[in-house]
């Protein structure tokens, strides 16, 4: 049989394989590159960058929960200027496709960041984070407001021809409505899902375990929720979906593709197994061989639902 083709398309962005590293879980690439060969990865999505640097939340920022973790990092990042000056040069070297994730607390800020980064050849696309649960302004205020998500997509679309991915929040009633508005306003794809709002308490002190009180839940605990959200979008809106939430291995990745994802992102697993991306790519190849298929397109949205 011929070599398996893992190539996927997200709008006019072609990726050598469908395995992406999720925003906020690989920094800007430098640290994880000591443990894995990033040039083999489909794409790297940078930590959310905002116009100005953000300090982030005080400790404690993370806590482990049953099969998952809560984080309230608070979008700590170096800010646009330092990102361009200091982080992009390294990202150039690693020879992977770079997608820049942008977070903002106003529509103008999203537009401003996109404009500046549009000039950077190394950045092949944008993921617009309208769904961070851990900051006061922006974040979820946008993420569960249909009009805001539509407006942001429209305004960002107006200033770049590069692919735009809208990263959706699961903390809404009907995620497919948000995917629809993103599509209507010109987004090339959607990512589903960002983290779910959660909390945890210390039973001896009565205090929340995270300084921010609530955090975003990620890891295997959220996989069934993420899968259901991907399926909902897939059944209702014709737009490429990047599935994300609790993927630990290639089997999880296949499951997301069956549910409708064209590509997948891995987040929390990078903290535990920095090689996970490469292992998933190998696993997908073997799966295709065993299923005797030559292209992943055959499994995307191949779900068989009761009629």
């Amino acid at each position: 049989m011929s070599e398996i083709d893992l190539q996927v398309k997200l709008g006019n962005l072609t990726l050598k394989n469908p395995v992406l590293l999720a925003s906020g879980t690989v920094g800007y690439g430098n640290e994880i590159s000591q443990f894995t060969d990033l040039s083999k990865i489909g794409a790297i999505i940078t930590k959310s960058v905002s116009l100005k640097p953000r300090k982030g939340n005080p400790p404690q920022r993370i806590v482990e929960t049953a099969s998952g973790m809560l984080n309230a990092i608070g979008l700590a990042n170096v800010g646009l200027e330092v990102f361009v000056k200091e982080k992009i040069p390294f990202l150039k070297e690693i020879q992977s496709t770079i997608i820049c994730n942008i977070a903002a607390s106003s529509i103008e800020e999203y537009v401003e960041c996109t404009k500046v980064l549009d000039h950077e050849d190394e950045i092949k696309g944008f993921e617009i984070n309208v769904s961070c649960p851990n900051v006061k302004e922006g974040g979820l205020e946008f993420g569960n407001n249909l009009t805001a998500v539509g407006k942001i997509t429209e305004k960002v679309r107006a200033v770049t021809n590069k692919p735009i991915i809208i990263k959706l929040s699961p903390n809404v009633a009907r995620i497919s409505e948000f995917a629809k508005v993103a599509k209507d306003e010109g987004a090339d794809a959607v990512s589903a899902i960002n983290t779910l709002v959660g909390t945890a308490f210390d039973i001896w002190t009565g205090k929340p375990k995270i300084y921010n009180v609530t955090g975003g839940l990620s890891g295997p605990a959220i996989k069934p929720v993420a899968l259901a959200k991907v399926l909902e979008i897939s059944r209702n809106v014709d737009i490429p979906i990047i599935g994300v939430g609790g993927i630990m291995n290639w089997k999880d990745a296949v499951e997301f593709m069956i549910a409708g994802a064209t590509a997948i992102q891995i987040g929390t697993v990078n903290f535990i197994n920095p090689q996970a991306g490469i292992e998933i790519i190998e696993g997908l190849k073997n799966y295709c061989k065993q299923k005797e298929i030559t292209s992943l397109a055959e499994i995307i949205a191949s779900y068989k639902l009761p009629s």
């Binding site: 920094g27 640290e31 005080p58 400790p59 920022r61 482990e64 700590a76």
Partner: peptide, 21 residues
């Protein structure tokens, strides 16, 4: 400090600097 990754990618383990904000 509680940690997730241990090598700088999660930003989960902050301690405040005394010289800069």
């Amino acid at each position: 400090c509680a940690m997730a990754c241990g090598f700088g990618i999660c930003q989960g383990c902050p301690v405040h600097s005394s010289t800069e904000d």
